[in-house]
Design a protein around this nucleic acid. Structure first.
Length: 478
RNA sequence: GCCUUCUUAGCUCAGCUGGUUAGAGCAGUAGACUGUUAAUCUAUUGGUCCUAGGUUCGAAUCCUAGAGAAGGCGCCA
């Protein structure tokens, strides 16, 4: 009788001395004269299963074909382990080698690889402990986001990936076309002949479409890929990344801040509860990694403590003007330590300023609101002072801006005026303005960068290591 | 896009102010040993020193250009 497969992650719920079947990929093999030990992982947990092969029960030629990277099905008894590291192990009675692996050519060796090298073999890096942990956590984060919104009665709206609006000014866009680019007549592109009869691009944000949903369904969110063709070469930027964008009718900026703080805490507490083993692994990895760094460059607290601290900390909420004054009067500013001096109200904060506020001054997440209107987008609601808008940025330690959002401008005349100021075409956005023409309401929303949040939760320093297949300038493999 | 640094074996790295035949650990291979834990021990294979020019009697090492990578900055999430 063929036994059904048990995932290695569920073995802790199974009684010892049960006969079971497991399938997975070999991490390491230690072959001996009497017994061979195999460390088997199937991706369900960071803890690989030790499989013990009694050499007298099997042909040695068959055992020799089992190598790092090969896939094997083992059947046997789950028994108490004689080893010190694991509580139980599989005493194999039979096995089937499902897929061989040429260990001389398999790039993932049973040793520590650099993250840079693993990026080059991104198609195989999920086979490592680090990346399987990260991708399990990523799943938990995604799932918790949907659960958070679902439990609150939000409706998930799929906003389009291909879009004709390039109004947001959120960055350079990727052009989408079905034209034969090798045969353009007169070097002049006629978009009337293109698939959509107009110029279209990959979306940089689902916000404007989400607003349409909010002004009908009250509470909505989009969660999808967004694309920026900016030539950004940093450890915090991707050309293709995932963004969560809730949009809520009848919410003002205070409600908006509360929602942002709530969801971040919810996600983090969900991950601590459901991915503790993986977090612990990443925490130890980080500690190990930082041993080679000078004290100043190390994290003050281990990963899990940093996450827990977020849960029991009320985020600091300040206005742009308050933040500006703190920066202007700060020591580094007076001593000229900032690369960009904070001396003129209206300036945009640079990452060094954000880092000072979060890491040095308040030592906790900070929400900055009421930014000068000149440095913010057209759809943000103009405050009564007529010089600031009801924008909010949530700043996190180490990753910086993790959320950007605002109360939206619901007054048709003010919105039109702002679009005029910024030279945006009313005609192209008529569909958007209709929401203000017919039953407009106060509403708010924000965008949460999934990968930025992932960086904070996993402690990974480079954003390319928290997404399975990173897209960056000059890099689109796999 | 800008600034800085880096590129040596499959991987992680050493290689001094230019000087003969470029080294180590791991992986691989052969063997030994063993309830092991990234097992251990012995032996051993393996190199377009990123690429193209240049300087020099002589270049992994110095210079120029290019490619790729990392960190920082800007744009932002």
């Amino acid at each position: 009788m063929k036994k059904s497969r048990v995932k290695i992650g569920s073995l802790k719920n199974i009684n010892l001395d049960n006969n079971i079947c497991v399938k997975g990929w070999v991490r390491t093999k230690r072959q001996g004269k009497n017994v061979t030990f195999i460390s088997l992982n199937d991706g369900s947990t960071i803890n690989s299963l030790q499989v013990v092969l009694d050499m007298q029960k099997f042909k040695i030629e068959l055992i020799e074909k089992i190598n790092t990277g090969s896939s094997v099905e083992f059947s046997g008894n789950l028994i108490k382990s004689q080893g010190k590291i694991q509580n139980y192990e599989l005493d194999a009675t039979e096995f089937v080698l499902l897929g061989e692996s040429d260990v001389g050519k398999y790039p993932i060796q049973p040793k520590k690889h650099s993250l840079e090298f693993l990026r080059d073999v991104a198609h195989l890096r999920p086979r490592t402990n680090t990346f399987s942990a990260i991708f399990r956590i990523r799943h938990a984060v995604i799932f918790s986001i949907h659960k958070f919104f679902n439990d609150k009665g939000f409706v998930n709206i799929h906003t389009p990936i291909i879009t004709s609006s390039d109004t947001e000014g959120a960055g350079e866009m990727f052009r989408v076309t079905s034209l034969d680019l090798d045969n353009i007549k007169n070097n002049k592109v006629d978009f009337n002949k293109d698939f959509f009869s107009k110029e279209v691009n990959l979306t940089v944000s689902g916000q404007l479409n989400a607003e349409l949903g909010a002004l009908a369904l009250s509470e909505v969110y989009t969660f999808g890929p967004t694309f920026r063709a900016e030539n950004s070469n940093t450890s915090r930027h991707l050309a293709e990344f995932w963004m969560v964008e809730p949009e809520i009718a009848f919410y003002d900026i205070i409600d908006n801040m509360n929602l942002a703080e709530d969801i971040l805490k919810y996600i983090i507490s969900y991950v601590i509860k459901n991915c503790f083993d993986d977090l612990e692994f990443l925490q130890n990895r980080e500690i190990d990694d930082e041993k080679n760094l000078p004290q100043i460059q190390r994290n003050e607290k281990p990963l899990i403590e940093r996450l827990k601290k977020i849960l029991n900390t009320a985020f600091e909420r300040i206005t742009y003007t308050e933040a500006f004054n703190i920066l202007r009067n700060s020591k580094p500013n007076k001593k000229g330590k900032f690369k960009y001096k904070a001396d003129e109200w209206g300036m945009d904060f640079q990452s060094e300023h954000e880092r000072f506020l979060v890491e040095k001054h308040f030592k906790k997440p900070v929400i900055v609101i009421d930014y000068p209107k000149n440095i913010k987008a057209f759809y943000m609601r103009v405050n009564d002072d007529n010089s600031t808008v009801s924008a909010m940025d949530v700043l996190f330690p180490s990753v910086g801006e993790i959320i950007g959002g605002s109360q939206r401008e619901e007054r048709l005349s003010v919105l039109k005026e702002r679009m005029n100021e910024m030279n945006l075409s009313e005609k192209d956005l008529n569909w958007y303005l209709d929401t203000r023409r017919f039953g407009t309401v106060v509403h708010s929303g924000f965008g949460l960068g999934l990968e930025r949040l992932m960086q904070f939760i996993t402690g990974m320093k480079n954003i390319r290591d928290v997404i399975p297949f990173p897209r960056t300038p000059g890099n689109c493999n796999y």
